[in-house]
């Protein structure tokens, strides 16, 4: 059941991205920036958590989930450490993902070469 929900919610989030790319001239880079920012904002006003409750990975795997993750971390740390938490919470929560992206990204880039098309 979880898996089906993840499929549907994740699929729908991607459809929004597709409509944005086809209907406007936004590049993938713009879409990614838009999604991470929207995720953060929706999370901030309390609308993203319900989506995560329904879709689970379907809401956390899309890049909106990354924005949500950053905001959740910031809010937790603000609760715990006050103003300092504004600066520490986001990257603490996203540390795993960011480190993985840098480490695996570097590794793969060093090992492999682009294939001529």
């Amino acid at each position: 059941m979880d898996v089906i929900n993840a499929f549907i919610v994740g699929g729908l989030i991607c459809v929004i991205g597709q409509i944005l790319m086809d209907a406007t001239k936004l590049t993938p880079a713009h879409v990614l920036v838009f999604f991470v920012t929207s995720g953060a904002v929706l999370s901030g006003i309390g609308l993203y958590q319900p989506l995560v409750d329904i879709g689970k990975a379907g809401a956390t795997i899309p890049l909106t989930g990354f924005g949500h993750n950053l905001v959740t971390g910031v809010i937790q740390d603000v609760d715990e450490y006050g103003l300092l938490g504004v600066f520490t919470g986001g990257l603490r929560a996203a540390a795993g993902g960011i480190t993985a992206a840098i480490v695996f990204g570097y590794l793969m880039a060093v090992i492999f070469n682009p294939k001529p098309k």
Binding site: M21, T27, P28, P114, K115, P116, K117
Partner: peptide
């Protein structure tokens, strides 16, 4: 050359874009 022009003017070859 497709590969030189693409990386100068557009996207990396392996970027998954349409």
């Amino acid at each position: 050359h497709f590969c030189t022009a693409e990386r100068q003017f557009r996207f990396p070859l392996e970027l998954g874009n349409q």
